[in-house]
Simulated assay, not measured.
Amino acid sequence: MDAKATLKEFCSAVERRDGKALAALFTEEGVYHDIFYGAFKGRAKIAELIDDWFYRTAQDFLWDMHDPVTDGRTLYARYTFSYKSNLPEAKGGRAMFEGVAIITLKDGLFAEYHEVANTATAFVDLNFAPERIAKIVAKQGAALKARPEMARHL
């Protein structure tokens, strides 16, 4: 597996709203754990995440993966991610955040995709009220706490 090329295809599939292409990078039973929307299991659900969920409230996605590292079992990459929000309070603004992708590999495909990201800056960019940001960040913290095995990636 060429990690750099595979991650480029991953990002490109999201940017062009091609859930089927992104899902093809996963095993049949692969799971995409999205920081906002939760877990999507199986290729059909992963394609739905991209084609429907991502584009429900946003458009014009830009995603770049940086400095991938893999041992053949796990693939790590830093990323920058941005999008133009369709939410009313965002007033057409662009949100950006940085994170780390943590991908479990099986036979050259993604078995699981996880991410850890600082999304608070994106919510400030989107003009979310401080109370709303606090709720979202608390929810993300609780999700991470519920998966203590993810702490080893921090």
Rank of each mutant, 00 (worst) to 15 (best):
W53M: 13
T104W: 04
N86I: 04
E131D: 14
N127C: 12
V14Q: 05
L25E: 06
M65P: 13
A58I: 01
L126Y: 03
K8N: 10
K41R: 14
A5K: 08
E131V: 13
N127Y: 08
K4T: 09
S12Q: 12
K20P: 01
K106Q: 15
F40W: 13
D2S: 01
D125M: 12
P88K: 12
C11M: 03
Y55M: 04
D107V: 09
L7V: 01
V31E: 04
F81Y: 14
F97C: 06
T80F: 00
A47M: 04
A3P: 11
T121N: 11
M150C: 06
N127T: 09
G93M: 10
A58W: 00
Y76H: 07
A120G: 00
R152Q: 15
V137Y: 00
G108F: 09
A21I: 03
L144E: 10
G93A: 11
L105N: 10
A3H: 06
L144D: 02
F110Q: 12
H114A: 05
A3N: 06
I102N: 09
L49D: 00
L109C: 13
E28G: 13
R43A: 04
M96L: 15
K106M: 12
A58G: 06
A24K: 07
K106C: 11
A47T: 07
S82T: 08
D107T: 05
L75T: 00
K106N: 13
A129H: 15
E112S: 02
A142P: 04
I102C: 11
A111H: 14
V31G: 02
A120T: 02
M96E: 15
A129P: 11
L22T: 07
R132V: 12
H114M: 02
Y32W: 11
K84T: 15
A101E: 06
G38V: 07
T104S: 09
S12D: 14
N86A: 12
D52W: 14
R152V: 10
E112D: 04
G38I: 06
E115I: 08
M65N: 14
G72I: 01
I50M: 07
D71M: 06
A58N: 12
W53G: 09
V124H: 11
A122P: 04
I46S: 00
F97E: 00
F110R: 05
R17I: 01
L7G: 02
R43C: 05
G99W: 14
T80Q: 09
A47K: 05
R147F: 06
D34F: 00
Y83D: 07
S12Y: 08
V100L: 15
V116C: 05
A24M: 03
L105F: 11
H66T: 05
K4G: 01
G99V: 13
F97Q: 02
W53I: 11
H153Y: 14
A90M: 07
T104E: 14
A44T: 11
A134F: 04
T57D: 13
T74E: 10
E112Q: 10
L87S: 03
P130N: 13
E131Q: 13
A101Y: 03
